[in-house]
Design a protein around this nucleic acid. Sequence first.
DNA 1: AATTAAATATGTAATTTCTACACATTGTTT
DNA 2: AAACAATGTGTAGAAATTACATATTTAATT
Lengths: 246, 246
Amino acid sequence: MKNLKNAPAGEKTALIGNAALLVQDYPRVPLTVDCVIFGFEENKLKVLLIRSDLEVYKGKWSLLGDVVHENEDLDDAAYRVLQERTGMTNVYLKQVHTFSSPHRHPGGRVVTVAYASLLNIKHHELCITENELHWHNVRTVRDMAFDHREIIDTCYNWLQKSIQEHPLGFNLLPEKFSLRELQNLYEAILNVELDRRNFRKKFFSMDFLIDTGEFEEDVKHRPGKLYRFDFAKYEKSKRKWIGIDF
Amino acid sequence: MKNLKNAPAGEKTALIGNAALLVQDYPRVPLTVDCVIFGFEENKLKVLLIRSDLEVYKGKWSLLGDVVHENEDLDDAAYRVLQERTGMTNVYLKQVHTFSSPHRHPGGRVVTVAYASLLNIKHHELCITENELHWHNVRTVRDMAFDHREIIDTCYNWLQKSIQEHPLGFNLLPEKFSLRELQNLYEAILNVELDRRNFRKKFFSMDFLIDTGEFEEDVKHRPGKLYRFDFAKYEKSKRKWIGIDF
DNA sequence: AATTAAATATGTAATTTCTACACATTGTTT
DNA sequence: AAACAATGTGTAGAAATTACATATTTAATT
Protein backbone atom coordinates (compact mmCIF):
# COMPACT_ATOMS: atom_id res chain seq x y z
CA MET A 1 0.00 0.00 0.00
CA LYS A 2 2.97 2.28 -0.03
CA ASN A 3 5.69 3.01 -2.43
CA LEU A 4 7.94 6.01 -2.61
CA LYS A 5 9.31 6.66 -6.01
CA ASN A 6 12.58 8.54 -6.14
CA ALA A 7 13.14 8.31 -2.43
CA PRO A 8 16.90 7.97 -1.90
CA ALA A 9 17.57 5.14 0.50
CA GLY A 10 18.34 6.22 4.02
CA GLU A 11 17.09 9.72 3.48
CA LYS A 12 14.34 10.83 5.78
CA THR A 13 11.23 10.90 3.63
CA ALA A 14 8.46 13.38 4.22
CA LEU A 15 4.95 12.18 4.89
CA ILE A 16 2.46 12.34 2.07
CA GLY A 17 -0.17 14.91 2.81
CA ASN A 18 -2.53 14.38 -0.06
CA ALA A 19 -3.49 10.74 -0.37
CA ALA A 20 -5.84 11.44 -3.26
CA LEU A 21 -2.99 12.79 -5.35
CA LEU A 22 -1.02 9.66 -4.62
CA VAL A 23 -3.81 7.34 -5.67
CA GLN A 24 -4.45 9.40 -8.78
CA ASP A 25 -1.16 8.16 -10.19
CA TYR A 26 -1.80 4.48 -9.49
CA PRO A 27 -2.20 2.25 -12.53
CA ARG A 28 -5.80 1.15 -12.99
CA VAL A 29 -7.16 -2.15 -14.17
CA PRO A 30 -10.60 -3.32 -15.29
CA LEU A 31 -12.13 -5.39 -12.52
CA THR A 32 -14.96 -7.89 -12.80
CA VAL A 33 -16.69 -10.46 -10.64
CA ASP A 34 -17.59 -13.95 -11.82
CA CYS A 35 -20.10 -16.09 -9.99
CA VAL A 36 -19.74 -19.83 -9.89
CA ILE A 37 -23.34 -20.68 -9.07
CA PHE A 38 -23.66 -24.24 -7.87
CA GLY A 39 -26.95 -26.07 -7.89
CA PHE A 40 -28.00 -29.66 -7.27
CA GLU A 41 -30.47 -31.68 -9.32
CA GLU A 42 -30.92 -35.32 -10.32
CA ASN A 43 -28.16 -36.19 -7.89
CA LYS A 44 -25.66 -34.17 -9.86
CA LEU A 45 -23.80 -31.07 -8.88
CA LYS A 46 -24.54 -28.41 -11.46
CA VAL A 47 -23.12 -25.03 -12.34
CA LEU A 48 -25.04 -22.23 -14.02
CA LEU A 49 -23.53 -21.06 -17.31
CA ILE A 50 -24.40 -18.82 -20.21
CA ARG A 51 -23.21 -18.70 -23.80
CA SER A 52 -20.34 -16.33 -24.29
CA ASP A 53 -21.22 -13.30 -26.36
CA LEU A 54 -17.70 -12.84 -27.66
CA GLU A 55 -16.99 -13.80 -31.21
CA VAL A 56 -13.69 -15.47 -30.28
CA TYR A 57 -15.53 -17.69 -27.81
CA LYS A 58 -18.46 -18.44 -30.09
CA GLY A 59 -20.38 -21.44 -28.80
CA LYS A 60 -18.39 -21.64 -25.60
CA TRP A 61 -19.78 -21.46 -22.09
CA SER A 62 -19.09 -18.69 -19.66
CA LEU A 63 -19.67 -17.88 -16.01
CA LEU A 64 -22.11 -15.21 -14.97
CA GLY A 65 -20.11 -12.08 -14.41
CA ASP A 66 -20.06 -8.37 -14.75
CA VAL A 67 -17.83 -5.40 -14.31
CA VAL A 68 -17.47 -3.94 -10.84
CA HIS A 69 -18.96 -0.49 -10.68
CA GLU A 70 -17.27 2.61 -9.38
CA ASN A 71 -17.04 2.54 -5.62
CA GLU A 72 -18.85 -0.76 -5.49
CA ASP A 73 -17.78 -3.34 -2.96
CA LEU A 74 -16.93 -6.70 -4.52
CA ASP A 75 -19.44 -8.57 -2.40
CA ASP A 76 -22.11 -6.13 -3.50
CA ALA A 77 -21.14 -6.64 -7.12
CA ALA A 78 -21.41 -10.40 -6.75
CA TYR A 79 -24.82 -10.14 -5.09
CA ARG A 80 -25.92 -7.82 -7.87
CA VAL A 81 -24.91 -10.33 -10.54
CA LEU A 82 -26.74 -13.06 -8.69
CA GLN A 83 -29.83 -10.92 -8.28
CA GLU A 84 -29.82 -9.90 -11.92
CA ARG A 85 -29.41 -13.44 -13.20
CA THR A 86 -31.47 -15.51 -10.82
CA GLY A 87 -33.66 -13.02 -9.01
CA MET A 88 -32.38 -14.52 -5.78
CA THR A 89 -31.21 -12.63 -2.78
CA ASN A 90 -30.08 -13.93 0.59
CA VAL A 91 -28.24 -16.88 -0.88
CA TYR A 92 -24.88 -18.16 0.17
CA LEU A 93 -22.10 -16.26 -1.53
CA LYS A 94 -18.40 -16.38 -0.83
CA GLN A 95 -15.32 -14.83 -2.33
CA VAL A 96 -12.96 -17.60 -3.36
CA HIS A 97 -10.06 -16.31 -5.43
CA THR A 98 -8.88 -13.49 -7.64
CA PHE A 99 -7.59 -14.32 -11.12
CA SER A 100 -5.18 -11.99 -12.79
CA SER A 101 -3.27 -13.71 -15.53
CA PRO A 102 -2.46 -10.85 -17.93
CA HIS A 103 -3.87 -12.59 -20.98
CA ARG A 104 -6.85 -14.32 -19.46
CA HIS A 105 -9.20 -12.02 -21.39
CA PRO A 106 -8.81 -11.61 -25.17
CA GLY A 107 -9.75 -7.94 -24.90
CA GLY A 108 -6.77 -7.16 -22.71
CA ARG A 109 -5.93 -7.14 -19.06
CA VAL A 110 -8.99 -7.86 -16.91
CA VAL A 111 -8.73 -8.99 -13.31
CA THR A 112 -11.67 -10.98 -12.00
CA VAL A 113 -12.74 -11.95 -8.51
CA ALA A 114 -14.45 -15.33 -8.36
CA TYR A 115 -17.37 -15.88 -6.03
CA ALA A 116 -19.01 -19.20 -5.32
CA SER A 117 -22.67 -19.33 -4.56
CA LEU A 118 -24.91 -22.23 -3.72
CA LEU A 119 -28.58 -22.29 -4.43
CA ASN A 120 -31.49 -24.60 -4.56
CA ILE A 121 -32.45 -25.16 -8.20
CA LYS A 122 -36.08 -25.72 -7.27
CA HIS A 123 -36.33 -22.32 -5.62
CA HIS A 124 -35.08 -20.79 -8.76
CA GLU A 125 -36.72 -19.82 -12.01
CA LEU A 126 -34.34 -19.10 -14.84
CA CYS A 127 -36.39 -16.00 -15.55
CA ILE A 128 -33.76 -14.21 -17.57
CA THR A 129 -34.28 -15.15 -21.18
CA GLU A 130 -31.36 -13.43 -22.87
CA ASN A 131 -28.76 -15.82 -24.26
CA GLU A 132 -28.83 -19.43 -23.21
CA LEU A 133 -28.76 -19.96 -19.49
CA HIS A 134 -28.29 -23.57 -18.46
CA TRP A 135 -27.25 -25.83 -15.67
CA HIS A 136 -24.24 -27.96 -16.51
CA ASN A 137 -22.55 -30.89 -14.90
CA VAL A 138 -19.66 -29.41 -12.93
CA ARG A 139 -17.14 -32.11 -13.57
CA THR A 140 -17.82 -32.78 -17.21
CA VAL A 141 -18.60 -29.41 -18.78
CA ARG A 142 -15.97 -28.42 -21.32
CA ASP A 143 -15.63 -25.72 -23.97
CA MET A 144 -15.39 -22.87 -21.56
CA ALA A 145 -14.57 -19.30 -22.46
CA PHE A 146 -11.69 -17.41 -20.83
CA ASP A 147 -10.06 -19.22 -17.90
CA HIS A 148 -13.47 -20.17 -16.64
CA ARG A 149 -12.72 -23.88 -16.48
CA GLU A 150 -9.86 -23.05 -14.10
CA ILE A 151 -12.11 -20.78 -12.06
CA ILE A 152 -14.72 -23.51 -11.76
CA ASP A 153 -12.06 -25.99 -10.71
CA THR A 154 -10.81 -23.65 -8.00
CA CYS A 155 -14.31 -23.04 -6.71
CA TYR A 156 -15.17 -26.70 -6.87
CA ASN A 157 -12.11 -27.52 -4.77
CA TRP A 158 -13.17 -24.85 -2.35
CA LEU A 159 -16.66 -26.36 -2.21
CA GLN A 160 -15.41 -29.88 -1.58
CA LYS A 161 -13.36 -28.65 1.33
CA SER A 162 -16.00 -26.34 2.73
CA ILE A 163 -18.94 -28.71 2.85
CA GLN A 164 -16.91 -30.96 5.10
CA GLU A 165 -16.35 -28.19 7.60
CA HIS A 166 -19.50 -26.12 7.30
CA PRO A 167 -23.13 -26.94 6.65
CA LEU A 168 -23.16 -25.25 3.27
CA GLY A 169 -24.71 -28.17 1.48
CA PHE A 170 -28.12 -27.43 2.90
CA ASN A 171 -28.31 -24.35 0.70
CA LEU A 172 -28.47 -26.71 -2.25
CA LEU A 173 -31.32 -28.81 -0.87
CA PRO A 174 -34.98 -28.06 -0.26
CA GLU A 175 -35.76 -26.91 3.25
CA LYS A 176 -37.04 -30.37 4.08
CA PHE A 177 -34.93 -33.23 2.83
CA SER A 178 -34.42 -36.92 3.36
CA LEU A 179 -31.17 -38.39 4.57
CA ARG A 180 -30.76 -40.08 1.24
CA GLU A 181 -30.93 -36.71 -0.52
CA LEU A 182 -28.34 -35.37 1.88
CA GLN A 183 -26.06 -38.30 1.26
CA ASN A 184 -26.53 -38.04 -2.50
CA LEU A 185 -25.46 -34.42 -2.24
CA TYR A 186 -22.29 -35.25 -0.34
CA GLU A 187 -21.47 -38.12 -2.66
CA ALA A 188 -21.98 -35.94 -5.71
CA ILE A 189 -19.83 -33.12 -4.41
CA LEU A 190 -17.06 -35.21 -2.91
CA ASN A 191 -17.23 -37.70 -5.78
CA VAL A 192 -17.03 -40.69 -3.46
CA GLU A 193 -19.36 -43.40 -2.21
CA LEU A 194 -20.18 -43.27 1.46
CA ASP A 195 -21.51 -45.95 3.76
CA ARG A 196 -25.17 -45.25 4.37
CA ARG A 197 -25.16 -46.38 7.98
CA ASN A 198 -22.08 -44.47 8.99
CA PHE A 199 -23.26 -41.39 7.16
CA ARG A 200 -26.52 -41.37 9.11
CA LYS A 201 -24.70 -42.02 12.36
CA LYS A 202 -22.35 -39.14 11.71
CA PHE A 203 -25.09 -36.63 11.00
CA PHE A 204 -27.32 -37.73 13.84
CA SER A 205 -24.43 -37.52 16.28
CA MET A 206 -23.83 -33.91 15.24
CA ASP A 207 -27.41 -33.37 16.37
CA PHE A 208 -28.35 -30.56 14.01
CA LEU A 209 -31.10 -32.41 12.14
CA ILE A 210 -34.68 -31.75 13.15
CA ASP A 211 -37.19 -34.50 12.47
CA THR A 212 -40.15 -32.78 10.82
CA GLY A 213 -42.44 -35.77 11.34
CA GLU A 214 -43.18 -35.65 7.64
CA PHE A 215 -42.24 -38.15 4.97
CA GLU A 216 -41.22 -38.11 1.37
CA GLU A 217 -44.02 -38.13 -1.18
CA ASP A 218 -44.16 -39.25 -4.77
CA VAL A 219 -41.38 -41.75 -4.35
CA LYS A 220 -41.88 -45.26 -5.64
CA HIS A 221 -40.50 -46.98 -2.55
CA ARG A 222 -40.72 -46.66 1.19
CA PRO A 223 -40.76 -42.92 1.94
CA GLY A 224 -37.97 -41.60 4.11
CA LYS A 225 -38.33 -39.16 6.95
CA LEU A 226 -37.87 -35.49 6.14
CA TYR A 227 -35.50 -33.35 8.18
CA ARG A 228 -34.64 -29.71 8.51
CA PHE A 229 -31.21 -28.37 9.45
CA ASP A 230 -31.10 -26.51 12.74
CA PHE A 231 -29.09 -23.45 11.68
CA ALA A 232 -29.82 -21.63 14.93
CA LYS A 233 -28.42 -24.44 17.02
CA TYR A 234 -25.41 -24.73 14.73
CA GLU A 235 -24.64 -21.03 15.02
CA LYS A 236 -24.68 -21.25 18.79
CA SER A 237 -22.48 -24.30 18.94
CA LYS A 238 -19.69 -23.36 16.54
CA ARG A 239 -16.75 -25.05 18.06
CA LYS A 240 -13.15 -24.16 17.64
CA TRP A 241 -11.53 -27.09 15.99
CA ILE A 242 -7.97 -28.12 16.74
CA GLY A 243 -6.76 -31.12 14.83
CA ILE A 244 -3.36 -31.10 13.20
CA ASP A 245 -3.48 -33.49 10.29
CA PHE A 246 -1.69 -33.63 7.00
CA MET B 1 -17.57 -11.38 -17.67
CA LYS B 2 -20.39 -10.27 -19.94
CA ASN B 3 -22.90 -7.54 -19.91
CA LEU B 4 -24.86 -6.14 -22.80
CA LYS B 5 -26.02 -2.64 -22.31
CA ASN B 6 -29.16 -1.66 -24.18
CA ALA B 7 -29.94 -5.17 -25.28
CA PRO B 8 -33.74 -5.54 -25.31
CA ALA B 9 -34.69 -8.70 -23.48
CA GLY B 10 -35.53 -11.58 -25.73
CA GLU B 11 -33.95 -10.04 -28.77
CA LYS B 12 -31.25 -12.05 -30.44
CA THR B 13 -28.02 -10.27 -29.63
CA ALA B 14 -25.10 -10.21 -32.03
CA LEU B 15 -21.74 -11.53 -30.94
CA ILE B 16 -19.09 -9.03 -30.00
CA GLY B 17 -16.31 -9.08 -32.54
CA ASN B 18 -13.83 -6.76 -30.93
CA ALA B 19 -13.15 -7.74 -27.36
CA ALA B 20 -10.59 -4.98 -26.89
CA LEU B 21 -13.19 -2.34 -27.64
CA LEU B 22 -15.46 -3.91 -25.04
CA VAL B 23 -12.81 -3.90 -22.35
CA GLN B 24 -11.84 -0.36 -23.21
CA ASP B 25 -15.13 0.83 -21.74
CA TYR B 26 -14.81 -1.10 -18.50
CA PRO B 27 -14.42 0.98 -15.35
CA ARG B 28 -10.90 0.76 -13.95
CA VAL B 29 -9.74 0.68 -10.38
CA PRO B 30 -6.35 1.07 -8.71
CA LEU B 31 -5.14 -2.33 -7.61
CA THR B 32 -2.51 -3.13 -5.00
CA VAL B 33 -1.11 -6.14 -3.22
CA ASP B 34 -0.42 -6.26 0.51
CA CYS B 35 1.81 -8.90 2.04
CA VAL B 36 1.15 -10.19 5.50
CA ILE B 37 4.62 -11.53 6.23
CA PHE B 38 4.61 -13.87 9.19
CA GLY B 39 7.74 -14.70 11.12
CA PHE B 40 8.50 -16.55 14.33
CA GLU B 41 10.93 -15.49 17.03
CA GLU B 42 11.18 -15.82 20.79
CA ASN B 43 8.22 -18.16 20.65
CA LYS B 44 6.00 -15.44 19.31
CA LEU B 45 4.31 -15.19 15.96
CA LYS B 46 5.37 -11.93 14.37
CA VAL B 47 4.26 -9.88 11.42
CA LEU B 48 6.49 -7.53 9.44
CA LEU B 49 5.25 -3.93 9.36
CA ILE B 50 6.45 -0.52 8.26
CA ARG B 51 5.48 2.98 9.30
CA SER B 52 2.83 4.45 7.08
CA ASP B 53 4.05 7.33 4.96
CA LEU B 54 0.65 8.96 4.78
CA GLU B 55 0.08 12.05 6.83
CA VAL B 56 -3.40 10.88 7.91
CA TYR B 57 -1.88 7.68 9.27
CA LYS B 58 1.11 9.34 10.90
CA GLY B 59 2.71 7.01 13.40
CA LYS B 60 0.54 4.08 12.39
CA TRP B 61 1.75 0.73 11.11
CA SER B 62 1.17 -0.58 7.67
CA LEU B 63 1.59 -3.80 5.72
CA LEU B 64 4.15 -4.10 2.98
CA GLY B 65 2.38 -3.41 -0.24
CA ASP B 66 2.65 -1.86 -3.62
CA VAL B 67 0.63 -1.11 -6.68
CA VAL B 68 0.20 -3.86 -9.23
CA HIS B 69 1.95 -2.99 -12.46
CA GLU B 70 0.44 -3.04 -15.91
CA ASN B 71 -0.01 -6.60 -17.12
CA GLU B 72 1.52 -7.95 -13.96
CA ASP B 73 0.10 -11.10 -12.43
CA LEU B 74 -0.92 -10.67 -8.81
CA ASP B 75 1.31 -13.49 -7.62
CA ASP B 76 4.23 -11.86 -9.40
CA ALA B 77 3.43 -8.54 -7.77
CA ALA B 78 3.37 -10.15 -4.34
CA TYR B 79 6.71 -11.89 -4.95
CA ARG B 80 8.13 -8.60 -6.13
CA VAL B 81 7.08 -6.83 -2.94
CA LEU B 82 8.57 -9.62 -0.89
CA GLN B 83 11.79 -9.54 -2.85
CA GLU B 84 12.08 -5.78 -2.60
CA ARG B 85 11.45 -5.72 1.14
CA THR B 86 13.19 -8.81 2.39
CA GLY B 87 15.47 -9.84 -0.41
CA MET B 88 13.90 -13.28 -0.17
CA THR B 89 12.73 -15.38 -3.02
CA ASN B 90 11.34 -18.90 -2.99
CA VAL B 91 9.35 -18.36 0.16
CA TYR B 92 5.84 -19.51 0.82
CA LEU B 93 3.32 -17.06 -0.54
CA LYS B 94 -0.40 -17.46 -0.86
CA GLN B 95 -3.27 -15.29 -1.98
CA VAL B 96 -5.77 -15.05 0.84
CA HIS B 97 -8.45 -12.47 0.15
CA THR B 98 -9.28 -9.35 -1.81
CA PHE B 99 -10.43 -6.27 0.07
CA SER B 100 -12.56 -3.73 -1.70
CA SER B 101 -14.46 -1.57 0.74
CA PRO B 102 -14.89 1.70 -1.21
CA HIS B 103 -13.45 3.88 1.55
CA ARG B 104 -10.70 1.66 2.82
CA HIS B 105 -8.09 4.05 1.43
CA PRO B 106 -8.22 7.75 2.30
CA GLY B 107 -7.00 8.64 -1.20
CA GLY B 108 -10.06 7.10 -2.85
CA ARG B 109 -11.07 3.73 -4.11
CA VAL B 110 -8.22 1.22 -4.00
CA VAL B 111 -8.75 -2.53 -4.16
CA THR B 112 -6.08 -4.64 -2.56
CA VAL B 113 -5.28 -8.33 -2.75
CA ALA B 114 -3.84 -9.73 0.46
CA TYR B 115 -1.10 -12.33 0.36
CA ALA B 116 0.23 -14.22 3.33
CA SER B 117 3.81 -15.28 3.42
CA LEU B 118 5.79 -17.19 5.98
CA LEU B 119 9.47 -16.81 6.47
CA ASN B 120 12.20 -17.68 8.86
CA ILE B 121 13.33 -14.54 10.66
CA LYS B 122 16.84 -15.88 11.07
CA HIS B 123 17.27 -16.34 7.34
CA HIS B 124 16.32 -12.80 6.90
CA GLU B 125 18.20 -9.53 7.22
CA LEU B 126 16.03 -6.44 7.36
CA CYS B 127 18.35 -4.92 4.82
CA ILE B 128 15.98 -2.26 3.61
CA THR B 129 16.62 0.80 5.71
CA GLU B 130 13.95 3.18 4.49
CA ASN B 131 11.24 3.91 7.05
CA GLU B 132 11.00 1.72 10.10
CA LEU B 133 10.66 -1.92 9.33
CA HIS B 134 9.86 -4.05 12.36
CA TRP B 135 8.48 -7.35 13.49
CA HIS B 136 5.38 -7.00 15.61
CA ASN B 137 3.39 -9.36 17.74
CA VAL B 138 0.51 -10.50 15.54
CA ARG B 139 -2.16 -10.60 18.16
CA THR B 140 -1.34 -7.44 20.04
CA VAL B 141 -0.22 -4.91 17.45
CA ARG B 142 -2.62 -1.98 17.21
CA ASP B 143 -2.59 1.42 15.54
CA MET B 144 -2.74 0.11 12.04
CA ALA B 145 -3.24 2.20 8.94
CA PHE B 146 -6.05 1.52 6.45
CA ASP B 147 -7.98 -1.69 7.09
CA HIS B 148 -4.73 -3.47 7.76
CA ARG B 149 -5.80 -4.79 11.13
CA GLU B 150 -8.69 -6.53 9.40
CA ILE B 151 -6.38 -7.87 6.71
CA ILE B 152 -4.02 -9.25 9.31
CA ASP B 153 -6.93 -10.86 11.15
CA THR B 154 -8.13 -12.52 7.98
CA CYS B 155 -4.67 -13.81 7.16
CA TYR B 156 -4.08 -14.93 10.71
CA ASN B 157 -7.31 -16.94 10.62
CA TRP B 158 -6.18 -18.42 7.34
CA LEU B 159 -2.83 -19.32 8.90
CA GLN B 160 -4.37 -20.99 11.94
CA LYS B 161 -6.47 -23.16 9.68
CA SER B 162 -3.75 -23.90 7.19
CA ILE B 163 -1.01 -25.03 9.53
CA GLN B 164 -3.33 -27.74 10.77
CA GLU B 165 -3.82 -29.13 7.30
CA HIS B 166 -0.51 -28.42 5.62
CA PRO B 167 3.09 -28.36 6.79
CA LEU B 168 3.44 -24.62 6.36
CA GLY B 169 4.87 -24.02 9.80
CA PHE B 170 8.24 -25.39 8.78
CA ASN B 171 8.81 -22.31 6.65
CA LEU B 172 8.95 -20.34 9.88
CA LEU B 173 11.55 -22.56 11.52
CA PRO B 174 15.21 -23.20 10.81
CA GLU B 175 15.85 -26.17 8.56
CA LYS B 176 16.81 -28.23 11.58
CA PHE B 177 14.58 -27.84 14.59
CA SER B 178 13.79 -29.53 17.86
CA LEU B 179 10.35 -30.88 18.65
CA ARG B 180 10.04 -28.28 21.36
CA GLU B 181 10.55 -25.53 18.81
CA LEU B 182 7.93 -27.10 16.59
CA GLN B 183 5.47 -27.32 19.44
CA ASN B 184 6.18 -23.73 20.48
CA LEU B 185 5.37 -22.69 16.95
CA TYR B 186 2.05 -24.48 16.94
CA GLU B 187 1.15 -23.21 20.37
CA ALA B 188 1.98 -19.65 19.38
CA ILE B 189 -0.03 -19.76 16.17
CA LEU B 190 -3.01 -21.64 17.50
CA ASN B 191 -2.87 -19.79 20.81
CA VAL B 192 -3.40 -22.95 22.84
CA GLU B 193 -1.36 -25.21 25.06
CA LEU B 194 -0.75 -28.69 23.74
CA ASP B 195 0.26 -31.85 25.54
CA ARG B 196 3.92 -32.49 24.84
CA ARG B 197 3.65 -36.26 24.65
CA ASN B 198 0.61 -36.30 22.40
CA PHE B 199 2.11 -33.64 20.18
CA ARG B 200 5.23 -35.74 19.66
CA LYS B 201 3.19 -38.85 19.09
CA LYS B 202 1.09 -37.08 16.48
CA PHE B 203 4.05 -35.82 14.50
CA PHE B 204 5.99 -39.04 14.69
CA SER B 205 2.99 -41.01 13.52
CA MET B 206 2.73 -38.79 10.45
CA ASP B 207 6.26 -39.95 9.74
CA PHE B 208 7.56 -36.88 7.96
CA LEU B 209 10.27 -35.96 10.47
CA ILE B 210 13.81 -37.01 9.68
CA ASP B 211 16.14 -37.49 12.61
CA THR B 212 19.32 -35.62 11.68
CA GLY B 213 21.35 -37.32 14.40
CA GLU B 214 22.32 -33.87 15.59
CA PHE B 215 21.39 -32.13 18.81
CA GLU B 216 20.59 -28.65 19.96
CA GLU B 217 23.55 -26.53 20.98
CA ASP B 218 23.87 -23.57 23.29
CA VAL B 219 20.88 -24.56 25.34
CA LYS B 220 21.20 -24.59 29.09
CA HIS B 221 19.48 -27.92 29.56
CA ARG B 222 19.51 -31.35 28.03
CA PRO B 223 19.76 -30.79 24.25
CA GLY B 224 16.94 -32.10 22.14
CA LYS B 225 17.29 -33.98 18.90
CA LEU B 226 17.14 -31.96 15.71
CA TYR B 227 14.83 -32.95 12.89
CA ARG B 228 14.21 -31.97 9.32
CA PHE B 229 10.85 -32.11 7.58
CA ASP B 230 10.67 -34.57 4.72
CA PHE B 231 8.97 -32.38 2.12
CA ALA B 232 9.63 -34.89 -0.66
CA LYS B 233 7.89 -37.69 1.19
CA TYR B 234 5.03 -35.39 2.09
CA GLU B 235 4.50 -34.38 -1.52
CA LYS B 236 4.31 -37.97 -2.60
CA SER B 237 1.90 -38.96 0.11
CA LYS B 238 -0.65 -36.19 -0.11
CA ARG B 239 -3.77 -37.98 0.83
CA LYS B 240 -7.26 -36.96 -0.04
CA TRP B 241 -8.97 -36.28 3.21
CA ILE B 242 -12.64 -37.03 3.70
CA GLY B 243 -13.98 -36.15 7.11
CA ILE B 244 -17.27 -34.35 7.44
CA ASP B 245 -17.19 -32.42 10.68
CA PHE B 246 -18.80 -29.24 11.81
C1' DA C 1 -54.47 -61.21 -0.45
C1' DA C 2 -50.01 -62.88 -0.54
C1' DT C 3 -45.41 -62.31 -2.40
C1' DT C 4 -41.57 -59.88 -4.06
C1' DA C 5 -38.64 -55.94 -4.48
C1' DA C 6 -36.42 -51.94 -2.96
C1' DA C 7 -35.22 -48.64 -0.02
C1' DT C 8 -35.40 -47.04 4.92
C1' DA C 9 -33.88 -47.76 9.54
C1' DT C 10 -31.00 -49.48 13.17
C1' DG C 11 -27.18 -52.22 15.85
C1' DT C 12 -22.68 -54.10 16.98
C1' DA C 13 -17.93 -55.59 17.08
C1' DA C 14 -13.19 -54.52 15.70
C1' DT C 15 -10.06 -51.01 14.78
C1' DT C 16 -8.01 -46.74 15.07
C1' DT C 17 -7.36 -42.31 16.95
C1' DC C 18 -7.44 -39.17 20.77
C1' DT C 19 -6.74 -37.89 25.52
C1' DA C 20 -4.94 -37.76 29.99
C1' DC C 21 -1.31 -38.91 32.71
C1' DA C 22 3.63 -40.83 35.16
C1' DC C 23 8.08 -42.07 35.13
C1' DA C 24 12.76 -42.68 33.53
C1' DT C 25 16.81 -40.28 31.11
C1' DT C 26 20.25 -36.87 30.05
C1' DG C 27 22.77 -32.93 30.58
C1' DT C 28 23.52 -28.43 33.38
C1' DT C 29 24.16 -26.10 37.49
C1' DT C 30 25.25 -25.72 42.27
C1' DA D 1 27.40 -35.69 44.34
C1' DA D 2 22.91 -33.75 44.50
C1' DA D 3 19.37 -30.90 42.72
C1' DC D 4 17.24 -29.20 38.74
C1' DA D 5 15.14 -28.82 34.26
C1' DA D 6 13.94 -30.28 30.08
C1' DT D 7 13.96 -34.36 26.87
C1' DG D 8 12.18 -38.86 25.80
C1' DT D 9 8.91 -42.84 26.16
C1' DG D 10 4.62 -45.89 27.60
C1' DT D 11 0.00 -47.09 28.84
C1' DA D 12 -4.86 -47.32 29.90
C1' DG D 13 -9.41 -45.42 29.07
C1' DA D 14 -12.45 -42.84 26.05
C1' DA D 15 -14.04 -41.54 21.74
C1' DA D 16 -14.41 -41.77 16.88
C1' DT D 17 -14.14 -44.41 12.70
C1' DT D 18 -14.89 -48.38 9.98
C1' DA D 19 -16.88 -52.55 8.26
C1' DC D 20 -20.63 -55.19 8.03
C1' DA D 21 -25.98 -57.72 8.84
C1' DT D 22 -30.58 -57.82 9.73
C1' DA D 23 -35.17 -56.08 10.44
C1' DT D 24 -38.87 -52.80 8.78
C1' DT D 25 -41.88 -50.34 5.79
C1' DT D 26 -43.99 -49.21 1.57
C1' DA D 27 -44.87 -49.94 -3.46
C1' DA D 28 -45.29 -53.04 -7.09
C1' DT D 29 -46.38 -57.62 -8.66
C1' DT D 30 -48.63 -61.95 -8.89
